[in-house]
């Protein structure tokens, strides 16, 4: 499915204004494609929270294309850049997220504090419920005060099962129970919430990999998706988060939230360029249907048209 282009464009309006309008303005000021123009474009990319490294790589690709095609008129840079950005996504898997080809389809959600894990889970669960699926949510964030209550309220609103433990209890046990009970009930989807933790806390990261190992005891090929939730307003640190979570947990996809609140939706490009990890879902608003599948083509189009 994914967002309609119109909705995407309005959710990404700020990024669009920041990134694309500025590039257009820069192109307008230079007649020819030269070092100065490319420097300016690179700076605009960086100012959109695209990492310094990725910006350099994009510009290198752009230069190559310019040379190959013997272009020197600056007007065409705009189209070339659009291509360059799409190029980043070429080798990235695009398995549909909501397809749900396992039963139960087990999704583990991880991330640093305050990125929007719990809210995202509510939105994902609602989507599955609307598709006629039976959903179990596991409140395995046993650390943050009232995290379980927050998820319980959501489970109630969305209409799905909730498996919870005690505050301060064992997260892995909650995750295990949730998968087991979902199997017993014949539920289609299990979504496991975990406590936010900074990627620099080694022991807390260890705990997460334990949760993942224990899930496998309940269902050997689970979790089928281990997704990292990134806050769209995070800057260059987003890459460090991906790096550590990937190493410790072998995450296979990213959810980027709060993209509507930032003029700098550039993290998407850096993650894909550097880690070849798919961005699975993006959040562009506070409404329940404001989280949906990420489509690279549409994303770039929404920005550039």
């Amino acid at each position: 499915m994914g967002f309609s282009l119109k909705k995407l464009a309005s959710g990404l309006l700020k990024t669009k204004e920041n990134l694309v309008s500025k590039i257009k303005a820069a192109v307008g000021l230079h007649k020819k494609i030269d070092g100065a123009l490319l420097d300016e474009i690179e700076e605009i990319l960086i100012s959109s929270d695209i990492s310094v490294e990725t910006s350099t790589a994009i510009i290198a690709n752009l230069k190559e294309k310019v040379a190959q095609r013997g272009i020197d008129n600056s007007d065409e840079v705009f189209q070339l850049l659009r291509e360059c950005l799409k190029d980043l996504f070429v080798d990235i898997s695009t398995e549909p997220f909501f397809a749900c080809n396992k039963k139960p389809y087990v999704i583990m959600i991880v991330g640093v504090n305050g990125t929007g894990k719990t809210t995202s889970i509510a939105k994902i669960a609602r989507r599955f419920v609307n598709d006629g699926k039976k959903v179990t949510i596991a409140a395995a964030d046993t650390f943050r005060a009232a995290a379980i209550d927050q998820l319980a309220i959501w489970a109630d609103r969305v209409g799905c099962h909730l498996v919870k433990g005690q505050e301060g209890g064992d997260a892995a046990a909650v995750a295990y129970d949730s998968v087991q009970s979902a199997i017993a009930r014949g539920d289609d989807v299990v979504i496991i919430d975990t406590a936010g933790r900074l990627h620099t806390k080694t022991n807390l990261m260890e705990e997460l990999s334990k949760v993942k190992r224990v899930i496998k005891k309940a269902m050997p090929d689970a979790p089928h998706r281990t997704l990292l939730v990134l806050d769209g307003t995070t800057g260059q640190n987003a890459l460090q988060q991906v790096e550590v979570f990937k190493k410790m947990l072998d995450i296979d996809g990213i959810i980027i939230t709060k993209l509507d609140g930032t003029a700098k939706g550039g993290a998407v490009f850096s993650i894909v360029e550097r880690y070849k990890l798919p961005v699975v879902l993006i959040g562009i608003g506070e409404q329940m249907d404001d989280l949906d599948e990420f489509k690279a083509h549409d994303f770039v189009e929404a920005l550039f048209t």
Binding site: S47, D49, V112, T233, T234, G235, A238, G261, A263, K264
Partner: peptide, 12 residues
């Protein structure tokens, strides 16, 4: 403000 905030910190 989150110490990890990126370029948009200024607007916020």
């Amino acid at each position: 403000a989150d110490a990890m905030t990126g370029q948009d910190a200024v607007n916020v």
